[in-house]
Design a protein around this nucleic acid. Structure first.
Length: 572
RNA sequence: GGCGUUAUAGCUCAGUUGGUUAGAGCGAACGACUCAUAAUCGUUAGGUCCCUGGUUCAAGUCCAGGUAACGCCA
């Protein structure tokens, strides 16, 4: 029994995420959270939407809605989809929450007190027509290099040349098209990350059990070139957390907000406060997860994220936390993922390429996606989604190996013994070998899950299902029944208990199917096995059960082809 | 242009600190079974471990160069 704090990288509010985003953070985090809960640990699993910044403002404007309303609506949409994928967050918060406002301002104040904030004067492009400063990428114009007339202020998409907004010929606002632009001087706060370089370096060095992918990215940012750079934490925008120094005003920063990268990770902490508030708990209840001086000393904190998020989680956010000088919990383990590619290219939100979370649920239940994505998680390198592979994997693993096992054993029992667990017979060498093998396999499965080896966990679980089929095939109760019905009864009884075992062990991967099996077996006890022999005799002779509907319908060639062409191009 | 990652069976991928005949699942062929979602179980076939050179008693594994794909940055 231990205490585990788990967070998934928080998805941006702007639009619905694709399957690549899902498998890179939320889904493996959910797998881990479900497993740890099943093992009896105390778990707090948090996620939220990342709601601030220019993209949210522009998306809201495009939708013709006030940005706060837009974010509230999109948060509800994302929450519903997360629920559809059975993501078992204890709380799905919002970075725009009052808790995050207060906490972000608090951290900024602490950092300023510690001398880790400095003011910098910058030149930024201001659009009079839009009444706002424009980020580089929201300025368009003609590329001085190739003449492309829709080059962005940060880069020309046509010739890939990196640009400065002032390089553009005839620059205009990408928001309104206005050419009434001017360069203005504006003052911003910078977080002095460079001052914390040695402390961060030593902290990273202490994490010898982190994946190479994680530490190598962090080290690169710490040591490449001039090393870790100071970073602006404020912007001239309306939508965001107003810049304040704790509870006090911040002279010179009126009308400015914190930069989204600064407040987003603080939401990991604030989200726990939202969780407490939503559940009628008080501050002490969430602080025991986050403050090492208030009970979080024994908490193990694990973060999940895509590789693009590693620098923020290994450097920027720890700089904020450490710099505050307060005893906040730092991440203990950081699990990062590579990218999932789609049919020979990248998933792309901006181009609408690939499969998005809402579309996925429209065509198939969550379990199908959960199984395929987790069993093919991009852990060691980028991995590839193809419809053919998806169809084959799901049909074979879920329908044929797991689903069919439950189907064959329940239907066989019904036809020979009726819908109750049969009595009689004794266990012999086959049964002892099965129980012994399963005990070993369970240990390997548990080890893989505990070390967050996602693909390996899936492979071990699948091997357990296959071992059940192997047992049935070798003892062949349908043949045994003709000569020794008592023995066939013992084999069938064990088979039904195997189905229950699979349901319990598979729950972190395929929660809905797991529940269906347990319901059919009329078993409310879903406790993790503690002793294989005892577990496999839990369903006693005389126990009633139902034959469930087909657990996993197979994906037909026609469906696979239709979906491939439907999702081949851009999102409609 | 700089840096980085990757390159292993038809496909998706494992291969610990260099150490016998390079592994898994799928797909394929063959066989067994017929309870089951034409499912299951078994057996077999399939690899110049991208190329070249080097270190070593020994290289998929280390080093150098090359090729290709991808990513990040300027």
């Amino acid at each position: 029994m231990a205490r585990h704090l788990i967070t998934s990288a928080i998805p941006y509010i702007n639009g619905i995420k694709h399957l690549g985003n899902l498998v890179g953070s939320q889904l493996p985090a959910d797998l881990y959270a479900r497993y740890l809960r099943a093992r009896g640990h105390e778990v707090l699993f948090l996620c939220a939407t990342d709601e601030h910044g220019t993209p949210a403002e522009l998306a809201a404007a495009k939708a013709g809605k006030p940005v706060a309303d837009y974010c509230a609506e999109m948060h509800a949409v994302q929450a519903e989809i997360a629920d559809g994928f059975r993501l078992s967050f204890d709380h799905f918060g919002r970075s725009s929450s009052p808790q995050n406002h207060a906490l972000t301002q608090h951290f900024a104040g602490r950092l300023a007190d510690a001398g880790l904030i400095r003011e910098v004067s910058e030149k930024q492009v201001y659009s009079n027509a839009d009444g706002r400063f424009l980020p580089d990428r929201y300025i368009e114009g003609t590329c001085p290099n190739c003449g492309y007339d829709r080059a962005r202020g940060d880069q020309c998409e046509n010739c890939t040349k990196q640009l400065d907004p002032t390089d553009l010929i005839e620059p205009r606002s990408a928001v309104s098209g206005s050419t009434d632009l001017e360069v203005r001087e504006t003052r911003h706060l910078f977080l002095c990350q460079s001052q914390m370089k040695d402390e961060l370096d030593a902290w990273i060095d202490s994490k010898s059990d982190w994946p190479v992918l994680t530490t190598s990215i962090a080290k690169k940012w710490l040591h490449d070139g001039d090393g870790l750079q100071d970073r602006g934490i404020t912007r001239d925008l309306n939508w965001g957390i107003p810049v304040r120094r704790g509870d006090a005003d911040w002279p010179g920063m009126e009308g400015k907000v914190f930069y989204v990268w600064f407040d987003a990770p603080i939401e990991y902490i604030a989200c726990a406060g939202e969780w407490a508030a939503a559940n009628g708990l008080d501050d002490a209840d969430w602080e025991r997860w986050w403050r090492t001086d208030k009970g979080a000393g024994d908490v193990r904190y694990t973060q999940f994220m895509g590789k693009d998020n590693v620098p923020f989680h290994t450097l920027s956010f720890p700089a904020t936390v450490l710099g505050s000088g307060e005893p906040w919990k730092l991440v203990d383990h950081l699990k990062s993922f590579n990218y999932l590619n789609y049919d020979g290219g990248q998933f792309s939100t901006s181009q609408g390429r690939g499969i998005f979370m809402d579309q996925a649920l429209e065509i198939l239940p969550a379990d199908y996606w959960r199984w395929w994505l987790l069993s093919h998680a991009p852990e060691n390198s980028d991995s590839e989604f193809t419809w053919e592979n998806f169809q084959q994997s799901v049909n074979k693993d879920l329908a044929d190996v797991l689903g069919n096992f439950v189907s064959r054993i329940t239907k066989f029992c019904r036809s020979k013994f009726g819908q109750e667990v049969p009595a009689g017979g004794t266990f012999g060498a086959d049964e002892e070998a099965l129980i012994s093998d399963l005990s070993e396999m369970l240990k390997r499965y548990e080890q893989a899950m505990e070390s967050m080896e996602v693909r390996k966990s899936a492979a071990e679980l699948r091997a357990i299902w296959a071992r059940g089929n192997e047992y049935l095939q070798s003892v062949a109760p349908w043949t045994e029944f003709k000569t020794d019905p008592e023995q066939a009864a013992a084999q069938t009884r064990l088979g039904l208990n195997l189905a229950r075992l699979f349901a319990v062990l598979s729950a972190p991967f395929v929660p809905d199917a797991s529940e269906k099996i347990l319901t059919a077996l009329r078993s409310e006890d879903n406790a993790w096995p503690d002793g294989m022999a005892e577990f496999l005799s839990a369903l006693r002779p005389g126990h009633d059960f139902d034959v469930p509907d087909v657990l996993f319908a197979k994906i037909s060639d026609e469906q696979s082809e239709e979906w491939q062409s439907r999702f081949g191009g851009t999102r409609v």
